[in-house]
Nucleic acid binder design. Structure first.
Lengths: 327, 327
DNA sequence: CGTCTATTTGCACATATGTTCGGCATCTGA
DNA sequence: TCAGATGCCGAACATATGTGCAAATAGACG
């Protein structure tokens, strides 16, 4: 049904969006009816062949950015307008994150980039425009298989390889080992050891942030069990990053699960450029936990999430009794 | 003037392009009039804040098409994805050319079509789907025999006759006459004179483009000798079309060979719909020469060749000094 | 404080885009 | 072969976007 005129659709879309021709002109040019062109363009858009980036920040968001960046001493914070798309603003985050990553790649700032995991990150990469990046390499920062060694469809690194043509290093291990002993064995294997060494030398780390709740993505994909989730929650966890569960002060909770994560340790990347891309109704707490850890130096999020976070800063400040904002 | 609402413009643009809201919705959301939003988005677009990418092989080709068509003011240009089949992408060109020709025939745009020569054109016709075209006639635009009057296996017109069942007019003459006097004699013959008259009334001309190098097809088939080739090369020729050798500015070079070609003159078809089908590693220069002559109104080529041509445009523009820059 | 100019605003219209729906061709399975 | 299903197509309609123009507003200057 569709695969056939995918090319034609791309053609029509190009002429429309980039060429700036009217649909009627395109119809004439391609010898098709205007309605057909309209449908082709819709199809191309539908299929995600069209990516749009908007430069420049609007005032509303800049205020939030400044506030968050200042509060946690981030190198930067990017807030994009939330478009009403429900609790998980994937569209917004994908566009914003892809824009950030695209710029990083264009500037050639980092030749080796470490990549985390998660649904958001996956969307970001999906939204990334195809372009050849011969001089960049990506390395996975954590195992990405479920414990049953099934391939994880949300694995980001593979898609990155495909889209950028860059060299990519996959971590052939489960997300969580079955036991601490198992993990030791895994880490002892040469293949894995090499990837870990490489990961430690990355110049930039791009990660996602997971939340600990009914909608937790790791739960839905079978990465962890209900029981495990309850356990870390009991230990005080409110957020997750690179397989580590953190309490609201940004400290790793005491739970066996944390020691079974097959991932680079937060201490190993502390002080390096680490950027998180995350947002959504359920995420503010988790994001704040990660921010409190001071491991990340940059944050890409959406307006609604940012607003909630800023409100929580203010509430905290008021409760603390000290600060008072003017204006 | 503008710096003021740059932020607002960015927000409006984001909501429109990423959020997919209608301008009216955005207006309501931001408490502004619809027209205002329209202008903000226009402003953002104008300022280059909005960047659109269209994925797909075809999309890249369209970019090349547009560029080439604009640069030489062509009625159209078709670029097909190169599939990596060596220096002469015959398969690609054949498919693309056949597709073009098939469309022309289907639309019944031209009832009398002039046909050039060359390996590429031959492949195009081979690739053409068999279908009865009772109302179309084809006429050869040049002699196609070697000087020894042997039948030329690469002659296109015969195959066309066979495939389409259309009436075809063959030009019973050598490609190049042995001398200018010989040519005069040939042109005086009734049979030939009639075909030439007919050729001048064609409504569409489809031609190939030859290159002047070690792989020159005319050399390989014995149409011309080494010595003749050296001669025109010395005179500045970089390409050939309908038996005429052109320099890089698209002007016929001063060489006796040019006057011995038994073919319709370029001046005779100037201003009429002339379409060239050509491509390959050795061809860019030759194609550009023909484009410079402004005799052709349409070009069918392959991606790799088009890319090279566009690069040469860019290089030329840079060398030439300032020129307008678009998008 | 008035007057003139430059800019901005939104109405009303012009164009472009998106959608619905009935017709037509093709396929399918007795 | 035919009746029904399926999907594609474009005319006509509905909505969204873009623009010329005159009125409103803000600035600049005397």
């Amino acid at each position: 049904m569709q695969g056939n005129d995918r090319g034609l659709a791309a053609r029509a879309a190009w002429l429309s969006f980039i060429g700036g021709y009217t649909q009627e002109e395109i119809a004439r040019k391609l010898g098709l009816s205007r309605v057909k062109i309209n449908r082709l363009i819709a199809e191309a858009t539908e299929a995600g062949l069209v990516r749009v980036f908007v430069e420049g920040n609007d005032a509303e968001c800049v205020a939030l950015e400044d506030r968050i960046a200042a509060h946690w001493k981030l190198d930067f914070c990017t807030v994009s307008p939330t478009v009403g798309e429900g609790p998980l603003p994937l569209r917004t985050l994908a566009a914003a994150g892809a824009h950030y990553l695209h710029n990083v790649l264009d500037r050639g700032e980092a030749k080796l980039i470490g990549i985390g995991h998660g649904r958001t990150l996956d969307e970001v990469v999906k939204y990334l425009p195809r372009s050849n990046r011969p001089s960049v390499r990506f390395v996975s920062l954590l195992g990405s298989l479920t414990r049953h060694a099934a391939a994880n469809p949300f694995d980001v690194i593979h898609r990155l390889a495909e889209v950028t043509g860059a060299e990519c290093y996959f971590m052939p291990a489960p997300f969580f080992a079955d036991s601490i002993e198992d993990k030791k064995v895994l880490l002892g294997q040469k293949g894995l050891k090499d990837v870990f060494s490489l990961a430690r030398t990355a110049e930039l780390y791009v990660v996602g942030i997971g939340e600990i709740g009914a909608h937790a993505h790791m739960l839905a994909t079978g990465m962890i069990t209900d029981k495990e989730l309850r356990e870390v929650k009991l230990a005080g966890a409110v957020g997750e990053m690179l397989g580590r569960f953190l309490d609201k002060n940004g400290r790793a909770v005491h739970a066996e699960l944390n020691d079974r994560a097959v991932a680079i340790k937060l201490e190993e990347i502390n002080g390096k450029p680490v950027v998180a891309i995350a947002g959504g109704e359920d995420k503010p707490q988790a994001i704040m936990a990660v921010l409190e850890s001071h491991v990340i130096k940059g944050l890409v999020t959406d307006e609604a999430t940012a607003k909630t976070i800023v409100e929580m800063i203010d509430a905290g400040a008021k409760a603390g009794g000290l600060k008072r904002a003017k204006q």
